[in-house]
Amino acid sequence: MERFLFFMVLTSTYGIQDWSQRPLGAEVNPGENVTLACVVKNKAGDCRWEKDGTPVGMFPGKYTWSKNLEKGDCSIHIFLAEREFDSGKWQCSVTATSFRSKDALVSDEVKLLVRKAPDSIIFYKGDHLLQNKIQIVEGLNTSITCLGLGGDPPPTYSWKLPPAISQHWIHHSDNASVLTVIGERSSHGSEISCTAHHPALNNNLVSYLSLDVQYAPRIHVEYEQNGTLHRIVSKHSTILAKEGEFLIIHCLAEGNPNPRVIWRKEGLLQTIDQGGKIVFMEIRKGDRGIYSCSAQNQIGVVGPMIVQLDVEYPPSLVSTVPVGSSQVQIGGGVTLQLSFYLSL
């Protein structure tokens, strides 16, 4: 009877144990201290902590109780957090007030994460790992993935783009960031950068990628005559030269990859390809004609630009050889003598 009365006094004095503050998960950098809170009202049982299902003992300088343990604060202080020993699922529990009571408490598991900084950043285009440079085509969409390796939790990302890139989209996923750009030739040779931000990093990680923008050629024609350089701006133009003059016609092409320039003359089956220029050391009237210039690379073909070359030359005597004669009676006793000659 005495024991029964004593039990009744205890429960009426302390009441039923219940949570005042349940544990919550936390993130911490290596070497930092962290407290996992666990507060119980009407605490009469003993506090316990487990990590990944294994009981955790108190070790001075590593794991210690709160100073108010007897008042129901079962929080655990973890010093100099280490990823190897402290990351995992933690659980707080309190034994029952007595073996007859049913007020034992067991918290949900909460995650303590000791962060790990990412080691490096890599770039992907589709499934292809990029090395410092990416090839994109003018006018087409290209997606570039920035991924930080080894970070826990994954880092967040930011991009820095050159002003020449006028159209782009960014999509952030759980562990990576995807940049989509439209190829513009004005951005060829410029750099983009991806920065990984992480609370465990002393300095953010930054990686750079050079843009190799490939585009179809553009051409224009120039000609050098009497020491003067002239630029042709229309697709159809005429060059007037005098016989015996020195003349160079240039077909200048700009593209990426480097384009191949092709010259053709109307009436000739073969192409005239002399490194993008036609040189007339002493122009002749036989050089008259219509010339066309075009250029091509792996991306496309441009042209032709048409140049009509007219050659002025002085008059010349033509030699003749007699090849026959004939007489024709035209009436009235008049005879017409006709002679025939062949021009050479």
Rank of each mutant, 00 (worst) to 15 (best):
S166K: 11
F246K: 14
V137N: 13
S20N: 14
N204R: 05
F246V: 11
F340S: 07
D18K: 08
Y291I: 15
S12Q: 14
T145A: 15
P162M: 08
L140Q: 09
D212L: 15
E2Y: 08
G53I: 12
I170E: 06
D46K: 12
D119P: 07
N256V: 15
I165D: 00
N68S: 05
A196W: 04
L149K: 02
L140I: 11
A176S: 12
C194T: 09
G72K: 14
R115C: 09
L240N: 15
T156I: 13
A26S: 03
Q225K: 14
N175G: 03
Y63E: 09
P154H: 04
R264N: 15
L147C: 10
P322W: 03
F246H: 12
S325N: 03
F59I: 11
N42S: 05
N203I: 13
K67N: 11
V279W: 03
W49P: 09
K265Q: 12
I144C: 04
E109S: 13
Y208E: 14
V213A: 02
P155H: 14
K111T: 15
N33H: 01
N175C: 14
N202K: 15
T271V: 00
T271L: 10
R22L: 08
M1W: 05
A241M: 05
Y14S: 02
K133H: 14
G267W: 05
P163H: 05
S66A: 11
Y63S: 00
A295K: 06
R115Y: 02
T97Q: 03
V279L: 08
N204W: 03
D287Q: 13
S237W: 04
T95F: 04
C146N: 04
H188S: 09
G57T: 03
G148W: 06
V178R: 15
E50D: 13
S158Q: 14
V221K: 10
N175T: 12
I248M: 00
S237T: 00
M305P: 02
D52Q: 03
F4R: 13
Y63N: 06
G286P: 03
S158K: 13
D152E: 09
K41P: 06
V178F: 15
H197R: 00
L229G: 06
P217C: 11
Q135N: 10
C74E: 00
L149Q: 02
L209G: 01
K285D: 15
P23M: 02
N175Y: 13
G61H: 02
G183S: 02
I306H: 10
W159F: 10
V181F: 08
Y223C: 15
V233L: 01
N256G: 15
G61V: 00
N297C: 11
W65P: 06
Q298A: 11
C92D: 11
P322I: 07
Y215T: 06
R231M: 08
Q225C: 04
Q91H: 05
V34L: 01
G331M: 07
P155K: 14
E282P: 08
L247F: 12
A104N: 08
L344G: 12
S207H: 09
C92E: 02
M8P: 11
S166Q: 13
H220R: 13
T180I: 08
V321L: 10
R260Y: 15
P30D: 01
K89G: 14
G189T: 09
L201R: 00
A104H: 08
Y313K: 13
P60E: 01
F4W: 14
P217M: 10
E312M: 12
K235V: 06
W169K: 10
